[in-house]
Simulated assay, not measured.
Amino acid sequence: MSDPNAVQKWQVRLCFSIKGALVWLGHLDMMRTMERSLRRAELPLFYSQGFNPRPELVFALPAGVGIETERDYVDIFLREHVSITNFLDRLAKTVPPNLTLLDAHLVVDEKKSIMGRVCAADYGLYFPKAASFGTLIWEAQAMQVEKHSKKKSRIIDLRPMLLEVYDSEDSNALEIKVKAGSAENMRMDLLSQVLVDQFGASEDNVNNARIVRHDLYFLPVKTNKG
C-alpha cells in the first residue's frame, strides 16, 4: 500500500558529454557544477533531508580525472513534473562550455539505482601505435598491477576485467570494452601502468594519451512490479 503522505518525486535521466577543461574536475567538483547549473535553470529540484540539503543527484559512474566522456549519465530528482523539452531547454542555458546535453527521459518504476546497474564501459586510448597493444593485452594470461588505497596496497589482475578489444582502422587507437561499476571496475590509470610496465609502451606516450569513455552498459531493469 502506498503512503498517502509520501512526497512524489520525478526522476529524469540525463545523458551528457564532457570534454575540454571540464575533464580535469574531480567528481565532487563535477557534482557542484551540475548542482549549480540546475539551480540556475530554476528547475523544481528535490532536496535531501538534514542540516545541509542538497539536490538529489545520482551519477552512473564518475569518470577518472582527465577522461573525456561521450555518453555520461546522471539521474536528477524533481518535486514537480517538467516536460523533457522544457527541462533540456532550461538547463542548456546554464551548463558550462564543454558540458553538452545529449538527451533525457523520465525514469519510471526502477528498483535499482543507475549506479548499481552499471556493468561495463567502452573506452578509447589514443597515443602513437596504441592499436599494436590490442593483441598483446587480449592474449595476456594476466595483467597484474599494484592498486593503492587509503588503507593498503594490493596486487590485482586486470585481465579478467578486459571483455573485448575492438578492431580499429586507426593505428593510434586502442578501443576496448571493460568491466565497470561498483562490483568490478577497470581503472584506466591502472591499465596505463600495465601498458608501460608489462608491455613496454612509452611512458611519455601513455602519460600524454587522450582517453575517452565512449559509453556505459547497464544491467537489465528490474521494476517494482516484479
Rank of each mutant, 00 (worst) to 15 (best):
M1W: 12
M1L: 14
D3I: 01
D3W: 00
P4N: 08
P4Y: 04
A6C: 05
A6T: 03
A6Q: 06
Q8C: 07
Q11F: 00
V12H: 02
K19L: 11
G20D: 06
A21R: 13
L22P: 06
H27R: 10
L28D: 11
M30I: 12
M34D: 11
R36P: 08
R39K: 13
P44V: 10
S48A: 08
Q49V: 04
G50T: 13
F51G: 14
F51C: 13
N52T: 15
P53T: 15
P55G: 10
E56V: 14
E56S: 04
E56N: 03
L57Y: 09
F59K: 13
A60D: 02
L61N: 09
T69Y: 03
Y73A: 01
V74M: 06
I76Y: 06
I76N: 10
E80Y: 06
T85P: 01
F87K: 15
V95Y: 04
P97W: 02
P97C: 06
N98D: 08
L102W: 07
D103T: 14
E110C: 00
S113T: 12
I114L: 01
G116Y: 00
R117D: 00
C119F: 01
C119H: 04
D122K: 14
D122C: 08
F127S: 12
P128Y: 07
K129M: 12
A130P: 08
A131R: 15
F133Q: 12
L136E: 05
L136R: 09
A140E: 07
H148M: 08
K151I: 04
I156C: 03
D157H: 06
R159M: 02
L163V: 09
D167F: 11
N172P: 06
L174A: 07
A180G: 05
S182V: 12
N185G: 04
R187Y: 07
Q193D: 05
Q198N: 02
F199S: 10
G200W: 01
E203P: 08
D204L: 04
D204W: 03
N205D: 15
V212M: 09
V212C: 09
Y217A: 10
Y217C: 06
N224G: 01
N224K: 02
